[in-house]
Write a protein that binds this DNA or RNA. Structure first.
Lengths: 139, 139
DNA sequence: ACTAATAATGATTATCATTCTCATTCTAGT
DNA sequence: ACTAGAATGAGAATGATAATCATTATTAGT
């Protein structure tokens, strides 16, 4: 039995619910959104438990987080390898298809002493409408 | 004159001070740290102004931000292309030398309608000490 | 099954980085 | 120098997340 699987071993009820929700929804969700959705489907968890469980899932290598421009975090499963291009002005995000990072991740896993669970790769700039707007404002 | 340079055109006093500080320090700094350092060197700016200026510098393509695990943001210049490997348990960060993302960034800049200023690339997992500690705790 | 010990949960409160507000000060163009 | 309009500062407001602690569920040992 390897390290990862022993850490993943037992999940609490709350952790299972959240893992399951992330699996079903397919998209990434904020902690507050997870709280709401569970409440809506009569699986109510305390907000504190949602945060605690998300942290535990991360440490077990099952969940990942990316920071949104507004300061919130979006959570998803580590099996999901999606990345985004985000406008610094309006916050619009569009998905990026390519991901050239896997070979580097493997190399790092061997050379560093870290056990790597996931990576984030995000691009930032201005979307076309915002570029236009900002140029118009500051001639 | 291209889009980027026109946006970068004029910097306010506060924006210049912060840009200069980031240039000198060489490391990335949180907004609160920037506020403190400027105060220490008798260049005091209001906290609101620090935040406003950082946002403006980002939109002008001069500064970039990466989210720290504790919810703060670390700011640096876009000319700095450094990336990190961070422990999900204790927050320790170590720099990653390689960066295989540039060719993708160029390709995206052409195919998407975004004007891309910078990217973040972060790896997350457990450092060796934390892996040991967590295994000891949950046998 | 029963009980003691341990871990998980929920309700509430506290924290703290960031944003908002608005009165004041600076700046650019005339 | 004068006058918009932008920039700034002080302080209050916001809101996501973390901490606290009493209660409930789970586990392990008998």
């Amino acid at each position: 039995m390897n390290t990862a699987s022993s850490l993943k071993s037992r999940l609490t009820r709350a952790q299972k619910q959240i893992h399951c929700l992330l699996e079903q929804s397919g998209e990434t969700l904020t902690a507050q959104a997870i709280y709401q959705r569970l409440k809506d489907q009569q699986q109510m968890l305390g907000l504190a438990t949602v945060y605690r469980s998300l942290r535990s899932l991360q440490i077990k290598g099952l969940a990942q987080a990316r920071a949104l421009p507004n300061g919130e975090w979006a959570y998803g499963l580590t099996s999901d390898d999606s990345h985004y291009l985000t406008c610094l002005n309006c916050g619009t995000s569009v998905p990026v298809e390519d991901c050239p990072v896997h070979s580097l991740e493997e190399k790092l896993g061997q050379s560093s002493h870290f056990q790597i669970f996931y990576h984030t790769l995000e691009f930032f700039g201005l979307c076309a409408p915002c570029t236009g707007r900002l140029e118009a404002e500051s001639p």
